[in-house]
Design a protein around this nucleic acid. Structure first.
Lengths: 190, 190
DNA sequence: ACCTGAACACCGTTCAAGT
DNA sequence: ACCTGAACACCGTTCAAGT
């Protein structure tokens, strides 16, 4: 997965500058931030950006890798602290909050749980679906979650809940409330 | 609300040409369709498009007005046929299906139920919120819907459900299923 | 091997000139 | 009063030239 040969020193430096600039720009302007502006912030030519990150999504994914990783690890931590049903709900809450707070993160999850033709199994996508898989299966085994929902569906619905609460002004307060409606529905028998 | 003086004949003709071209273009390319292309299709200068529709949203709204109207009327028709709780669920199903099938319609509803600073009460927005208002209140009076949800919240959540099911390949089949999870949650006591 | 930045194509928006 | 289309600003993407 990692490149065979290490990067040349200047390439590595540009790569990291681009990543830092991207994190800043995405935070300021959302996932639509100007790529040209990101290259300028990083002090590199626009061609260099394309060399390292051939698509916007590749850059977005690289910029948010650590956040995704942290969310996945939270799943495991929570699973050790709470019984399965509560663990799932708690993790979904943290996930949904993250999706509304960190601009661009929601669209990243979106493309990770899409199954259109492309269906590029992104690194961050498989990390999150893996985490969801464990929590969902455990809750189903315990009987606190209906058995006919797939982990990826739970992620899609959480994405939807985050979208819905973004439409309200105080997105932070509504997300818990909207998510509880979803989890109430998920608990019910099919 | 309607203009004081009637439009000049050529203006009226251009207006309608633009509208037809917009319906076509939005259907083909989604809400992001090129405005310049729409003007070209209609055979008018780009400035004329801006004269009639100062923003993309204005054009989008005008293009979908009849669809919105039809959805609102369906709400009343269903309300006469079914008991309140079932009527709400049935209408939300038709709404969600419309949101996934008609490209651009979802974003239109989205801006109608957003309460950010702008909060322009669009014509189509108030039409849909009015319809939702009646169905929601009736279901709550009957006791088949929890009393602490607002009509606009139900619309936001339906928007979210449509978003979630768009992430699945066969959006049409998933939307009923995802919506039923939501309505299960909405039935539960608070 | 990698970087730079000019060049190209495309889009939204404005506005002077025309009828 | 309304229309046209050139002009401008901006953005993504490619690629020849440079180190």
């Amino acid at each position: 997965m990692t490149q065979a040969r290490p990067m040349r020193a200047d390439a590595r430096r540009n790569y990291e500058r681009l990543l830092r600039a991207a994190v800043e720009a995405f935070a300021e302007h959302g996932e639509g931030a100007s790529l040209d502006d990101i290259a300028k912030r990083a002090g590199v030519g626009s061609g260099t950006l394309y060399r390292h990150f051939p698509t916007r999504r590749a850059l977005l994914e690289a910029a948010y890798l650590d956040r995704i990783e942290a969310l996945a690890q939270r799943a495991d931590a929570i699973a050790r602290e709470l019984p399965p049903g509560e663990a799932l709900v708690e993790w979904l809450n943290e996930l949904a909050l993250g999706l509304t707070r960190v601009r661009g993160l929601k669209s990243l999850l979106g493309s990770a749980v899409t199954d259109d033709g492309s269906a590029v199994a992104t690194a961050c996508g498989s990390r999150l679906t893996g985490a969801a898989e464990r929590l969902v299966r455990a809750a189903q085994a315990e009987g606190s979650l209906r058995g006919d929902v797939e982990p990826i569906e739970v992620l899609r619905l959480t994405h939807g809940v985050a979208t819905a609460s973004e439409l309200a002004s105080g997105a932070g307060t509504d997300v818990r409330r909207y998510l509880s409606l979803l989890t109430d529905g998920l608990r019910a028998a099919p």
